[in-house]
Design a protein around this nucleic acid. Structure first.
Length: 295
DNA sequence: CAATCGTGGAA
DNA sequence: TTTCCAAGATT
C-alpha cells in the first residue's frame, strides 16, 4: 500500500508552487491557510501575489488588516485572512519572525488547527506528523474500511487508523502524508472516483465490496440563498471593491442590489450582518455612519 | 457536539 | 437549475 501510493505520487504529483523545494516555510504556511476549504486551483494565483508582496511573516505582520482582506480576494472565509495576519504578528513577537517547527507551537497560532499544524510541520519542516484532512479521511475510509465516505466528523478511531499507517521515517512520512492527500484529490475523489487509475484498487476494501453507496445519515446541505453568510459575503465584497468608506445606507443599497433582495425587507438583516462583521474585525465604522475595511 | 463562516466550479 | 463540496477552525 505505502510503496504503491508513494510511487504513484512521484509520477502524478501536481507541480504546485508551494511544493517547490525553494519555497520557504512561510510560503508553505500561507498555502495551507489559503487551502482551508478552498480548492487549490483557486489558491495558486492569489498565493503567488501574496508571496511576491509579503515574502516573510514580518512583511505581512506590518500590513493593515484591510489591505490583507482586500488581497484575499474571493478565496472565501475572509476571517482566515485576518487570522493569517495575526499569526504573522505572533511569529514576529514570539518566534523571531519564523514559522515555528513544533506542532504544538503551530497549533497555538490564530487560524491553525490540528490539520494545518500537522501539515506545516510536515511539509515545511520535514517533521513526522499525522496529517488528516478530508482527502486522507476519504482514502482511508474506502481502502481500509470499505466505506464510500468518512464519518461526518473526525472520530478517534479514524485518527488512530491514520496514525498507524504513517511511515516511521520522518522524510518518508512527509511524502506519505502529501501523497495520500493527492491521491484523494486526483483519483479517490468524493464524487467521481477514478478507481481504474488508482494504484491501490486491487487491495481497496471499498472496491472489493463492490463500491457500496454511503450508508450513513444524509448530509444536510449548506443553505445559501438569503442567509447571513451570503449577505456578509456581499458586504465584504462591496467594501473590498471600494477604495473609500461607504455610508451605511449606500452599503445596504449596494448589497441588496447585488443580491437582488428587497431593501425594505432585508435592511435589518444587512444591518445585523454589518454588526457581526464589525465584531469580527472585518469591517470598521468611521465618521459616525460610514463603513470600510479595517485600516 | 453542532452551528457558523464564502465562493465558485463541476456533476 | 439545483446540489455538492473543497488541504478546516472556532465557538
Amino acid at each position: 500500500m505505502r510503496r504503491r501510493v508513494l510511487d504513484w505520487y512521484a509520477v502524478h504529483a501536481r507541480p504546485l508552487p508551494w511544493r517547490d523545494p525553494e519555497t520557504t516555510a512561510w510560503g508553505v504556511f500561507v498555502s495551507e491557510v489559503m487551502s482551508q476549504q478552498t480548492p487549490v486551483g483557486r489558491v495558486e494565483p492569489v498565493w503567488r501575489e501574496w508571496l511576491a508582496r509579503w515574502p516573510t511573516a514580518g512583511d505581512l505582520a506590518a500590513e493593515s488588516p484591510g489591505e490583507v482582506v482586500r488581497a484575499w480576494g474571493r478565496l472565501g472565509y475572509p476571517r482566515r485572512a485576518l487570522r493569517l495576519r495575526e499569526a504573522a504578528v505572533a511569529m514576529v513577537e514570539h518566534h523571531d519572525g519564523e514559522v515555528p517547527q513544533d506542532e504544538d507551537a503551530l497549533r497555538s497560532l490564530p487560524g491553525v488547527g490540528a490539520y494545518t499544524a500537522a501539515a506545516v510541520a510536515a511539509f515545511a519542516h520535514g517533521r513526522r506528523t499525522v496529517v488528516v484532512d478530508t482527502n486522507v479521511r476519504r482514502v482511508l475510509a474506502r481502502t481500509l474500511q470499505g466505506r464510500a465516505q468518512a464519518a461526518p466528523a473526525l472520530t478517534a478511531a479514524e485518527s488512530r487508523l491514520a496514525a498507524e499507517v504513517v511511515p516511521q521515517d520522518p522524510e518518508t512520512s512527509a511524502v506519505w502524508n502529501v501523497a495520500v492527500m493527492e491521491l484523494g484529490a486526483l483519483v479517490c475523489r468524493a464524487r467521481s472516483p477514478e478507481c481504474e487509475a488508482c494504484p491501490v484498487r486491487d487491495l481497496c476494501a471499498w472496491v472489493a465490496a463492490g463500491r457500496p453507496a454511503d450508508d450513513g445519515p444524509p448530509r444536510r446541505g449548506q443553505a445559501w440563498h438569503g442567509t447571513d453568510r451570503q449577505v456578509r459575503g456581499a458586504i465584504v465584497q462591496t467594501l473590498r471593491e471600494s477604495p473609500d468608506a461607504i455610508a451605511r445606507a449606500g452599503l445596504e443599497h449596494a448589497v441588496c442590489t447585488r443580491l437582488r433582495l428587497d431593501p425594505a425587507r432585508h435592511a435589518a438583516q444587512v444591518d445585523r450582518c454589518v454588526g457581526s462583521l464589525v465584531e469580527d474585525g472585518l469591517v470598521e465604522p468611521v465618521d459616525g455612519d460610514r463603513l470600510r475595511l479595517p485600516a
